[in-house]
Amino acid sequence: MSTLLSTDGLTKRFVKKDSATVALRDFHLEVEEGTFVSVLGRSGCGKSTMLNLLAGLTTPSAGEVRYQGRVLRGPQTDIGYLTQSDTLMPWRDVQRNVEMPMELQGTPAKERTEAARDLIDRVGLAGFEHHYPRELSGGMRRRASLARMLAGRPSTLLMDEPFGALDAQLRHELQVELLRLWSGSEQTVVFVTHDIEEAVLLGDRVVVLGGLGRVIVDRRVDLPRPRNADDLQVDPEYVSIHRELAAALKGAAS
C-alpha cells in the first residue's frame, strides 16, 4: 500500500486585525491508500481546519498537502468531503441533489438519473427522491449528503463528525451503513470525530490530536471486521485501546 495523502509542516493562521489565530501548527499526517483513518480530538483542536485543508477548500499559511504525489491546489472531484453541517441545496429535491456532482462532471442525464436512484436506494432513502431537504429529518439529510458525496465517485472520503448531531441510536445505525458502503470499495477515508467509540469502531488506525493539531497518539486498530459495537464493548483488546485513547485525550487537555 502506498501513501495517498500526506501533509508536511501544515500550518493555518486566521488573521484578524493585528493578531492571528493559529488553528494548526506544523501538522504531519500520512494516509495509506484504501485505509480508514479516524482522527480523534476534542473540539477546538483544529480538526475541521485540517479537513478543510485536506479537501483543498482553504489554502495553508505554510506547508503543503500532497495528494497522489502532487501538491493540492484546490478542491478535486476525486476527494469527497462530508461536512459537519448539511449543505444540500434547499431548492433541489433529494434526487436532483444526489445528481448534482454528476451534473457538474457532465454525465448524461439518463445515466445520472439511474446512478442517483441506485445511490438513494443504497443509503436507504428510497421513496424520498422527490422530497426537499426541509421535508427530511436530520438523519435522512445525512443519508442524502452521503449519497451525494458518493455520487461524485471519489476515491478519498473526508468526513467531519458527520453523525455528531444525531441521537445515539441513529448515529450507530449510520456508522454501520457507512462501513457497509465502504467495505470492498477500496476508498480511503479520513473520519474526524470526538467520540472514542466511533473512532475505534470505524478506523483501521486512530490518530489523536492535541492542541493545534499536535499528534499525540497514532496507533493501528487490528480488531477484526466486520465489527459490532455491542460485541466490542466486552472485547479486552477494544477495552484497552479505549482506555489508552481516553487517557491520551485527557492528557491533551492539560
Binding site: 477548500l57 478535486q76 472531484t77 476527494i79 448534482m100 456532482p101 461524485g152
Partner: peptide, 8 residues
C-alpha cells in the same frame, strides 16, 4: 463550498 468540492 459544496459546489467547489464537486468540481464547480
Amino acid at each position: 463550498d459544496a459546489v467547489r468540492l464537486m468540481g464547480g
